[in-house]
Amino acid sequence: MAGIFGILNKIKPVYDQIYKITLFLCKMLLIADILVATLTVAGRYIPFIPDPAWSEEVILSCMAYMTVLSGALAIRRRAHIRMTAFDKFLPEKLVTISDVISDIAVLVLAIVLIVVGWRYSVEIGSKGSYVSMPNVSRFWMYFAVPLGGIAMLIFQIEVLLENIEKLFAIKEEI
């Protein structure tokens, strides 16, 4: 238990950095989406601004990346929506145990997303391209999923360790 505690303190600054970088990426993706959508409208009326056919597909792909990366951020902030209505009626230990189970389940999901997502991206990437951009492989459309899986895995591990630590702490109080 002391071991876990030590690790957590040591990795925290690293996690802060990863969080910052991921957040930065999400902001950039959001900005890119807004700019491309504005460009589409501007290009329709202002002759020298292009109204590219790829705008829709690019916007949607950026959104996919933003979705999975930001979703992982919410894991660290423990912000995901869940049923907490009965928490106040349950013993803290039971709640923490259920947290740990849920953490493990999400870890499993993250691994599935990484493995299956990677395999699928490669598989489909070798077979197709974006409709509006024949030179860009469809790999990039689906690569969001394994990438998001990695981000989920990283942030979920920290949360799991914290919950395990908390679980031991409760035990000692008893």
Binding site: L23, C26, K27, L30, I31, M63, A64, M66, T67, V68, S70, G71, L73, A74, R77, A79, H80, I81
Partner: peptide
């Protein structure tokens, strides 16, 4: 302010996906 946007989006978009 964009951080606060991402905070909200982080919860919603993944749920929709």
């Amino acid at each position: 302010a964009l951080e606060s946007c991402i905070d909200t989006l982080s919860i919603v978009l993944i749920l929709i996906a």
